[in-house]
Computed example of a mutant assay.
Amino acid sequence: MNLVSPMIVGILYCLLMSLIREPHRRRFNAVMVGGAGAAYLSGGGFGPWELPFVALMAYVAYRGLESWTFIGFGWLLHTAWDMAHHLKGNPILPFYHDSSLACAICDPVIALWCFRGGPSLIALVRRRFRPGRTTDHAHHHISAPS
């Protein structure tokens, strides 16, 4: 499996989410992580244990409505659930054997972004490369006292 592609998917997710203004971005991501908690319900790889996980993720998502930290924590919980399903051989996409492993690689990328407060990556790039900005400090002069 290509390990880079899932990381790119995570970055693309964060870029797309950057199109949503705050505070809607945080709330939308709380809903997304809550939905991710139910992703394995139809496969039922862990039988009735799938239900407490969904309940836990619903609680984390609820707390995430007001906290990027909880959303990040939710993505890390989902990473652990992805790995458990991958090791059990019960992938999130039954037609793609390594789909849970790919999800387990993608989710921490999203979690890191959430732990940083879900900043707009688009705004960060714009600030970094805005016209007139220079990283060359040679043109700054300090006048010697007279």
Rank of each mutant, 00 (worst) to 15 (best):
D98W: 14
W113D: 03
R116T: 11
M32L: 10
I122F: 11
R133N: 12
L101I: 09
T134L: 08
Y59L: 14
C14W: 05
Y62W: 12
L16G: 11
S120F: 11
F73Q: 09
C14S: 11
T69N: 13
D136F: 12
I71V: 12
V109W: 12
L41C: 06
D98E: 15
P131H: 09
A111L: 07
F115E: 02
S67T: 05
R25P: 11
L124P: 02
W81A: 04
V31A: 06
A84Q: 12
F53D: 03
P52E: 00
I122Y: 08
H85Q: 06
C106Y: 09
F73I: 10
D107R: 00
D136S: 10
L51E: 00
G72D: 01
P108W: 06
L65H: 09
C14H: 02
P131Y: 06
G89I: 09
S100C: 10
L101R: 09
R26N: 05
R63L: 04
M57H: 00
R26E: 09
S99Y: 13
L41F: 08
F46H: 01
E22S: 08
Y96D: 14
L56I: 10
H24G: 05
G74S: 05
W81Y: 12
V33S: 01
R130I: 10
T135E: 14
H137D: 14
P52K: 00
L87M: 15
G117W: 08
R27H: 01
R128A: 15
G37M: 00
P23M: 03
C103T: 08
G74L: 06
V54L: 06
L41M: 08
H78C: 11
I122C: 08
S120T: 05
H24V: 07
L77W: 12
P91S: 08
Y62P: 07
L93A: 14
P131E: 13
Y62F: 11
R63G: 06
L93W: 14
R126L: 13
A80K: 06
P119H: 04
N90V: 15
G34Q: 02
D136L: 09
G34R: 00
G35S: 01
P108R: 06
L77A: 12
C114D: 08
A111M: 07
C103N: 14
I122V: 12
G72C: 04
I20G: 00
C14A: 14
S42E: 03
A111R: 02
L124A: 11
A111I: 03
P48V: 02
T79E: 10
H24D: 07
E66C: 07
L87V: 15
